[in-house]
Design a binder for these strands. Sequence first.
DNA 1: CGGGGATTTGACACATATCAAGAGCGGTGG
DNA 2: CCACCGCTCTTGATATGTGTCAAATCCCCG
Lengths: 262, 262
Amino acid sequence: MAAAEIQSITPIRRSVTPIANSAAHTVTKCPTRCSTCNLRELCLPCGLTGTDAERAEELIYTRKRVKRGEAIYHAGDEFISIYAVRSGFFKTSLTLEDGREQVTGFHMAGELIGMEGIGTGLHNSSAVGLEDSEICVIPYSRLQELTRDLHTLQAQFHKVMSREIVREHGVMLLLGSMRAEERLAAFLLNLSQRFTARGYSHAEFNLRMTREEIGSYLGLKLETVSRAFSRFQEDRLISVQQKHIRILDVDGLRTAMGQKPN
Amino acid sequence: MAAAEIQSITPIRRSVTPIANSAAHTVTKCPTRCSTCNLRELCLPCGLTGTDAERAEELIYTRKRVKRGEAIYHAGDEFISIYAVRSGFFKTSLTLEDGREQVTGFHMAGELIGMEGIGTGLHNSSAVGLEDSEICVIPYSRLQELTRDLHTLQAQFHKVMSREIVREHGVMLLLGSMRAEERLAAFLLNLSQRFTARGYSHAEFNLRMTREEIGSYLGLKLETVSRAFSRFQEDRLISVQQKHIRILDVDGLRTAMGQKPN
DNA sequence: CGGGGATTTGACACATATCAAGAGCGGTGG
DNA sequence: CCACCGCTCTTGATATGTGTCAAATCCCCG
């Protein structure tokens, strides 16, 4: 399957040191062009054709490797570029002064992150790799210029931002009016659907994040997440083996997702 | 105070009928131009000057009056325009099949709503007036054209969308990692700050929404919201009289907002 | 083979939801 | 103008879902 090359097979392993803000990303001149990237149907250039697609090549200067635990940017960093995930897996998160972390999203190949920085010129969240990953760096100033000429690119960029808003609406719905198991079911179905869109099995995948990170995203404690996993396994909706998930009953999960009152 | 004219003084009153999707909005040729609108510092044209500002006039075709309880658009409606709140107050919300409603935001003068529709061409939420209001209708196709020429307008539009993402991050933080009273404190401080930006008192205002709508927004039941109000009143942080709120102790509220663990 | 983080599971505590009753307020109609 | 009616809001009693604390196990990795 062509998509296999997208995804690093590195086993999950936590870096011991706290997230390092090392500026020493490995930087490479972009060896892959958008026009030949197997993610172009999902990514920013989606819908571009012919000469537009060629000009869109100008967007990406560099690709960077990001190691597990390494950050692309931190909250408070100056906003310069947005980033397309080329391979790997990221989390974005906010941190309160008292140390509480709120994971705002998990991001996989073809997804764009960093747009929250446009409004203020500063990033308001951090983006950290959950495995060794690669990102395409899209300087925002360049994107701005290019969208003036390339109307499809402009439309596409607006769509990407709008979809991010819609995605967050979904999270608000989840956090505001669903119960623990409903949240986890929604989360698993969402992951499944996104893996499917990338050519992976909809029924079997490896989680890249810890129970604690899932919990932070879902507004739950890690123990609650763990219990919900166990419950789903008892009910034969999924099988869980550490980070390996197999979905046994999609409809059952759907049912678990949209049932009881708040 | 000049800003007084922005805000309708209509007393709060619930319409008896369920939210009507009457197509009979009152439509008027826009009598006020962006360049003379007292919201221009807050609204989309923010930062435009000279000829750019003049050309931005082309954006707004029409203004509409929206009655309390009336919707600008519903989830599922075709996306055509975005809307700037000229006066009044709106809520946006999603509804689950089982009837659960999640309020995704409250919107006041100068704020833009409807951008969530760009991604799919359909609105994914509904926008309903919480009092008699006025909106400026901005056809998206026109906005797209105009942003190609007016670079400041393009930048401004991107900023507005980005800020919406940041706003939603804040709500996720609130829903995911704050306790009931922290949420309400954050909510009140946010309202206060937005009223201040519009020239109103930071310490005294009328809520336009019910306890239930606040609860839906904050992921709480209306009883919990009511109890939190009472608690704040006991603690002399605020005084509450139905929908009338007076903030007595801003720092106290700030403290109430960022304290205890999840 | 040992060690440390991640995960699971149990017992218990606590915050918030639920259920219920009553009060306040605004609007309407007699 | 007053009385009623329907919402909205408040408050109390109780139920329950999830958090907290703690311990055991698992698993990966050095």
